[in-house]
Design a binder for these strands. Structure first.
Lengths: 147, 147
DNA sequence: GTAACTTGTAATGTGATATATTACAAGTAT
DNA sequence: ATACTTGTAATATATCACATTACAAGTTAC
């Protein structure tokens, strides 16, 4: 299984809001076109990002803005905001191991800490990456294309 | 999204094969009971583990055995064997970013290396964990329960 | 204040996928 | 030969991500 495209959509959306902030009125429709994703999905993502304190959106009022500078938004912040993986953990555990089997009875407790260890390694790496890293990369690619 | 339960099933299965190797004839039916998972799924997982050189199974012949010692089987080996995440990457990317938008045109290239970086962090951590770590833990839990 | 826009969200459709289940072929062992 | 195994195809079921429609509710500009 994979981590939902909501995550990359959110990264894209945040980068867009910043990139176009001075030139266009950024709306969910605008973002839907840039991402190629349905506007309703975009609004859903925006809602989650808003709840996480990453963007400012107001019903009715157009003009979506960032609530923090790009450099203060990490991949982890976004992942936590848009993905519900946090609740269930990265790994799905088979649900009915036998209570009668000594291995089945203990596998969950024995494996859990290691699964968490893997999940934490992933999350720690996400904390090290900021949207500004991606945005900078985008800008330099755009410049190279213009030249 | 989450990583398929096939992964924890595989860890469970491997631990079982080792734990019961001297006392019971371990079959897919036996493993199905211990895991609480359908025998056909177990056989599918066993096939994948066989292909990865982790277990030995022969059609018709009962008695499934490990192809290597527990200490030489890492979480990563199993993850690679049973999960097809490797093909698509851990992250799903939204598929139709606009070619007309400068951000949309470049987001994929700009984000990809960072997504890979996260995936690699996760996989590296999985390489550090062996099934023997879990099996040892299970044994000591069983002993504590018997006392 | 009303017209033309926005966002928020419920409801529904659709497609993909993980797991369960049935059924049976094919191999092995006693 | 009988009674077990594994291998696998075919199908069912459930879940879930995303798309879509529809509309309520808010904002802004005139």
């Amino acid at each position: 299984m994979q981590i939902t495209s909501r995550f990359t959509i959110a990264v894209h959306v945040i980068a867009c809001i910043d990139y176009f902030k001075d030139d266009y009125k950024v709306t969910s429709g605008f973002l839907a076109k840039s991402t190629g994703v349905n506007p309703v999905i975009i609004r859903g993502v925006l809602s989650q990002l808003k709840e996480a304190g990453i963007v400012n959106v107001r019903q009715g009022a157009s003009g979506i803005a960032l609530a923090k500078p790009l450099g203060e938004i990490s991949f982890y912040d976004i992942y936590e905001a848009v993905d519900s993986v946090k609740d269930d953990g990265l790994f799905r555990f088979h649900e009915n191991p036998s209570e009668e089997c000594p291995v089945g009875r203990n596998i969950h407790a024995a494996a859990d800490s290691r699964l968490m260890q893997v999940q934490r390694a992933m999350e720690d790496e996400m904390k090290r990456i900021r949207v500004s890293d991606v945005a900078d990369d985008i800008r330099s690619r755009i410049q190279a294309q213009e030249a």
